[in-house]
């Protein structure tokens, strides 16, 4: 058994699940849009851009992962 995946219960919760046994992250928006990525910077950017680019009911194919450097 694994722990509960949802701890926060608000109406505007964004989630990123790190899929067990993989390096894959799955982002889930409160609107239902989903997307996978291999690093968190790009995935947060996509999630937090809601509703931009969140219309598709089918999750878009994972993009070629790029290592993005972030200014602190």
């Amino acid at each position: 058994m694994s722990g509960p995946a949802r701890m926060l219960t608000g109406d505007r919760v964004y989630r990123i699940h790190w899929m067990p046994g993989t390096d894959i992250l799955r982002g889930v928006c409160h609107c239902g849009a989903e997307r996978v990525a291999e690093e968190p910077v790009e995935l947060w950017e996509w999630l937090l851009a809601h509703p931009q680019g969140h219309h598709s009911p089918v999750p878009p194919a994972p993009e070629v992962p790029t290592r993005t450097a972030v200014p602190a």
Partner: peptide, 21 residues
């Protein structure tokens, strides 16, 4: 162990779960 991260944008909370079985 992989983590699940949640952000409640309205209430301003970050939640990170790491459940090690």
């Amino acid at each position: 162990t992989p983590i699940t991260t949640e952000v409640d944008d309205e209430r301003g909370i970050v939640y990170v779960s790491r459940h090690m079985d």
